[in-house]
């Protein structure tokens, strides 16, 4: 079936378009106001974020949460690991231990003296 239009058809379509265009001006004032309100309300709506941005945001949140969880779980083990080091530092830095070390040198000298003497 041919779907080509004749010149008469084209004139008819142009006339219909003219009537429809003019009819738009006849829309009553309350309806025009409602349309304006609908438009303003639509323009105030924020565009939805693209899916890939949502995915990226979600992935970043999950990564940060996972990192925080790992650090939190590991924390007691690190404290235990550091505790002996701190105790050693106490031993090394205390003044009593310096005296003990000096006494040890004295006892070594005495022992050497006994052997040679």
């Amino acid at each position: 079936m041919s779907t080509e239009f004749q010149p008469d058809d084209e004139r008819f379509i142009a006339r219909v378009k003219q009537v429809l265009d003019q009819s738009v001006g006849g829309i009553d004032h309350p309806t025009v106001l409602r349309l304006q309100h609908a438009r303003v309300a639509a323009c105030e709506v924020r565009p939805a974020r693209p899916w890939r941005l949502l995915w990226a945001g979600g992935l970043a949140t999950v990564s940060v949460a996972a990192l925080a969880l790992v650090l939190w779980v590991k924390q007691p083990a690190l404290e235990n690991h550091h505790a002996p080091v701190l105790e050693d530092m106490d031993l090394v830095l205390s003044t009593e231990n310096v005296e003990l070390a000096e006494d040890l040198e004295f006892y070594h000298w005495l022992a050497d003296d006994d052997v040679t003497g």
Binding site: L20, S23, V24, I27, T31, V32, L35, Q36, A38, R39, V40, A42, C43
Partner: peptide, 14 residues
């Protein structure tokens, strides 16, 4: 967008 919708809203309503 406002301009576009203002131009089309009445025809769309019809």
């Amino acid at each position: 967008l406002d301009c576009f919708l203002a131009g089309i809203e009445r025809r769309a309503f019809r």
